[in-house]
Amino acid sequence: MSLSRKQFLSNLALGSGGLAIMSSFGFMSVSVNDYNSLKAIVIDFDKCAGCRTCETVCSSQNHKFEINGSFVHGLGNPELSNIRVWRYNPPLDIPVTCFLCADAPCVEACPVKPHPETGRKALYRDEELGTIINDYDRCIGCQSCADACRTNRGGVIFPDVEGSPHGMCTLCDGDPSCVKWCPYEALSYLEINSEMDFRNMTPRQIATRLLEKYYDVETSKNAAL
């Protein structure tokens, strides 16, 4: 009898006591349209093969070089990507990117006073796409945003050597490169309902929900993304 990938990993997880998470979709990144209707990067974990193409194209698109006055795509260093693929044992690959949360705890945590003209802190939300943007000229490198993300969401914001935040999804101006170039069609960019499951949940909460759904086992203290 042949086993599906989900059944195979389920057997491995139950046999070894390890963590495995599978889903037909996963809520990982949203843009905000009036904060009620959302558009999201939806991840099909059944299709993800862990090839990390998404990391390469994300880095290339968002870290361009200027040559003779023109900007060209970067080298595609996965360490600079805004989407990260986390690998687990039993074999499981989990792409994770910025939630772009509607309540934006990272923006709320920013201690920089709003600009008198724009009303923006150093970290603010783009009004068109809903992405989170950092004003590097005003950022004080306190890492409060990274701490808030790590405590309240997925911990995808990471500081550079000067403490400025990186890792916030740009949605590539509304045409996500990770979605376009995924060779397994594991990523989609779709309109979803704001009440959809997994919205604004931490990876640990997502793991708990999916474990209960697919494996009917309790999550151990160390079972987290």
Rank of each mutant, 00 (worst) to 15 (best):
M1P: 15
M1E: 11
S2T: 07
S4P: 11
S4W: 00
K6E: 15
F8R: 14
L9W: 05
S10N: 12
L12H: 05
L14A: 10
G15T: 10
G18S: 14
L19E: 06
L19D: 04
S24Q: 11
F25K: 11
G26I: 08
V30I: 06
V30N: 11
D34T: 09
Y35M: 02
N36A: 11
L38P: 04
L38V: 09
L38K: 07
L38T: 05
K39E: 14
A40F: 05
I41R: 02
I41G: 05
V42F: 00
I43E: 11
I43V: 15
D44A: 07
G50Y: 06
T53E: 08
S60W: 01
I67Q: 06
I67P: 09
S70W: 08
S70F: 13
H73Q: 11
G74L: 02
G74F: 01
L75E: 09
G76W: 05
N77C: 04
P78N: 04
P78D: 06
E79R: 13
S81G: 06
R84V: 15
V85C: 08
W86Y: 14
P90G: 03
P91V: 10
P91C: 00
L92W: 02
I94V: 14
C98T: 09
L100N: 15
C101E: 04
D103M: 04
A104L: 00
P105T: 04
V107I: 15
V107Q: 03
E108F: 02
A109R: 02
V112W: 02
K113D: 11
K121V: 05
A122L: 00
Y124N: 10
Y124V: 06
E127K: 14
E128T: 15
L129E: 07
I132P: 09
I133Y: 00
N134C: 14
N134Q: 04
D135M: 01
D135Q: 04
D137S: 12
I140M: 07
G141H: 07
G141N: 06
C145P: 13
D147F: 07
N152V: 02
N152K: 11
R153Q: 13
I157M: 10
D160L: 03
G163W: 00
G163T: 06
P165M: 00
H166L: 03
G167H: 03
C169A: 04
T170Q: 07
L171W: 01
V179F: 06
K180P: 10
W181F: 15
C182M: 03
P183H: 06
E185S: 15
Y189M: 01
Y189P: 08
I192K: 07
N193W: 01
E195L: 09
E195D: 15
R199T: 14
N200Q: 11
R204Q: 10
T208M: 07
T208Q: 13
R209D: 13
R209I: 10
L210T: 10
L210P: 11
L211M: 15
L211K: 15
E212S: 12
K213S: 08
Y214F: 14
D216Y: 09
V217K: 15
E218T: 14
T219G: 10
T219P: 10
N222V: 02
N222C: 01
N222G: 14
A223Q: 14
